[in-house]
Computed example of a mutant assay.
Amino acid sequence: MTIFDEVKELVDVPTAARSYGVEVHRGNMALCPFHRERHPSCKLYDDHYYCFGCQAHGDVIKLVQELFGLSSIEAVKQLNSDFALGLDVDKPPDMEKVNRRRREIAERKAEKARAEHMYDVLLRYFTLLDKYKMLYVPTSPDDETDRRFVYALQNIGYAEYMLETFNRFDKEQQEEIKTEVDRIEREYKRCIEEWGECLGNRFT
């Protein structure tokens, strides 16, 4: 593994772009820093970027090269300094340290993926209950109360609480409620299997 490979593993493109003042919008779409535009056309992936407007593309090192007019090794040194990577760019990389950093990065990515999945479960469950509540509310006192409406009323308060508080939890707290989120995911799937999936204003 070269020093270039190591830097690319340690710093992802969206993080570097934001750090260097690139305006990044939802979905990691950015205003391209290499041509004038009013709407974001540059997609930032973890390991590369691509502009659909001017076709600029490359990895995180190329991004820094183009932003600051640097050579590739100068860009590596810039990233090493700005992100406190602690790499000795004048010596071959210490593979023990490299592998340790790679494990740390993999663990952080796995933690992020777990947290995103848990939040997605809570969001989908709350959204489903909210639609049950809106679509199956009785329109007159003589209407038979739909069981989906009753179920939503019984559970939506708790679902909303879990959704709103999840992002305030630290990593340890998120791990502590994983069993509960797993239960909610099973309950969501049961609702879909028993009552159908809500698509817009219709259930299938």
Rank of each mutant, 00 (worst) to 15 (best):
P141I: 01
N99C: 06
K43E: 15
Y151Q: 02
L87D: 00
Q78E: 15
R103W: 05
W195Y: 05
E37H: 01
A75C: 10
C191L: 03
S81C: 05
F83L: 09
E160K: 08
R36K: 14
L70Q: 02
I73Q: 15
G69C: 05
A56F: 13
A115S: 07
Y125V: 11
Y132T: 04
D146Q: 00
L10A: 01
R26F: 15
K131N: 01
E194W: 04
L44E: 11
K8Q: 03
E6H: 11
L129P: 04
A110D: 10
R114Q: 01
D46S: 01
A17R: 12
C32M: 04
I156D: 02
D5H: 03
Q154L: 10
L129K: 01
D47Y: 11
L70E: 08
Y50P: 09
Q65K: 12
T2W: 14
I3S: 03
V76C: 09
S71A: 01
S71L: 02
S71I: 08
Q174H: 14
H35T: 01
F4V: 14
D170H: 13
R102E: 03
E172N: 02
K171W: 00
E74Y: 12
T145F: 12
Q173G: 05
Q174K: 11
G53H: 01
I3D: 12
R190C: 10
T204R: 15
E187I: 00
M162Y: 10
